[in-house]
């Protein structure tokens, strides 16, 4: 039986439309105009226990709205959803004991207090017994490597340190399903990787079901086996990551800086040159035609390289390519 089951779920918001300026403000008070925004348009999917799903899409695609409906804090406009056999918006409090959520853009830890104080509070709120709570906390502190920070006031932690404590706080009550809404947003590369490792460990050790939203293609690549891509509130793609990788995550971007100025332009076989600057270039290529190491070897063979940066193309580009391709199996 699926642990999350979503059928035709939709959410439409009425957003007040306001014209610019004081005049607009007055007008919006006297005769407000509403615009309907369809944030989620009839999505259907299900998740088996123990799955790690990446629910991705550009900003405003409806990812957070979906999470908020599945955690019971938003009522849908239509459709159904079951999480752990409960209807989230109707059984919100019951469900709360069994799910955990992390909203990357919002703090839940008390700002002036060390994370341990919030942990103790949550132990009471989730009605954890003392021994179980101590064990759980010891486990989380060890696996998240946050032992050094749990006694430091949150305001003194870096964003990366704080995020790991934020996630740990949401896991104290041993939730069966974890919703992570943009857990890596705003973090630097190292901190991002740490968060990903943490999530991975958690998933492997406890077999919990994880529902992760992100607009970072790197999050999916390093974490998930299954990917759902949403755009404009609708599901665009739902398949295994390997299939997505094979078909769409085949391109890489390389930013190179050279020791000496480029005097006579730049060219490289089988590589698309996106931008040429005085000292550097930006390239894109297909790893099926030219593996990354081959491109790097060629780059280093010609010139002295000072800096090199390899990245995935932005998610928007991948989505654009999914649209471009004819829908096949």
């Amino acid at each position: 039986m699926p642990i999350i089951d979503v059928r035709d779920l939709s959410k439409t918001f009425s957003v007040k439309r306001k014209e610019a300026g004081l005049r607009g403000s007055l007008k919006s008070i006297i005769r407000p105009e509403f615009r309907r925004v369809e944030a989620v348009k009839g999505i259907t999917f299900s998740l088996e226990p123990g799955e790690l799903l990446a629910f991705i899409g550009p900003n405003g695609a409806g990812k957070s709205t979906t999470i908020k409906m599945l955690t019971g804090i938003l009522y849908p406009s239509s459709g159904q959803a079951q999480v752990l056999g409960l209807t989230p918006w109707r059984d919100r409090r019951q469900l709360a004991y069994r799910i955990g959520s992390v909203f990357g853009q919002k703090p839940q830890l008390w700002y002036h207090l060390p994370p341990i104080d919030t942990f103790n509070l949550f132990a009471k709120i989730y009605e954890l017994d003392d021994r179980g709570f101590r064990q759980r906390m010891a486990f989380l502190i060890e696996s998240f490597e946050i032992g050094d920070w749990v006694h430091t006031p949150v305001r003194k932690l870096s964003l990366g340190q704080r995020m790991r404590c934020e996630i740990a706080a949401s896991l104290l009550h041993r939730p069966h399903v974890i919703f992570l809404d943009e857990p890596t947003i705003g973090l630097d590369v190292v901190a991002k990787q740490q968060i990903r490792d943490t999530i991975k460990t958690l998933h492997e050790q406890e077999g919990v079901t994880i529902f992760l939203t992100s607009h970072d293609a790197g999050d999916i690549e390093s974490l998930c086996k299954r990917v759902i891509i949403v755009n404009h509130g609708a599901i665009l793609y739902d398949d295994r990551l390997s299939a997505l990788k094979r078909r769409y995550l085949t391109r890489k971007e390389i930013d190179v800086r050279f020791a000496e100025a480029l005097t006579d332009g730049f060219q490289l076989d089988e590589v698309e040159v996106l931008k040429v600057g005085a000292y550097g270039v930006k390239l894109q290529f297909d790893t099926r035609d030219t593996p990354v190491d081959v491109v790097i070897q060629r780059l280093m063979a010609d010139r002295a390289v000072v800096d090199i940066n390899i990245a995935d193309p932005p998610l928007e580009e991948i989505i654009a390519r999914i649209y471009q391709e004819p829908q096949s199996s």
Binding site: K68, G72, A96, S101
Partner: peptide, 11 residues
């Protein structure tokens, strides 16, 4: 938006 946290707890 912190309502997302405060409303979603068992109390």
């Amino acid at each position: 938006g912190s309502l997302a946290y405060t409303v979603g707890r068992p109390y």
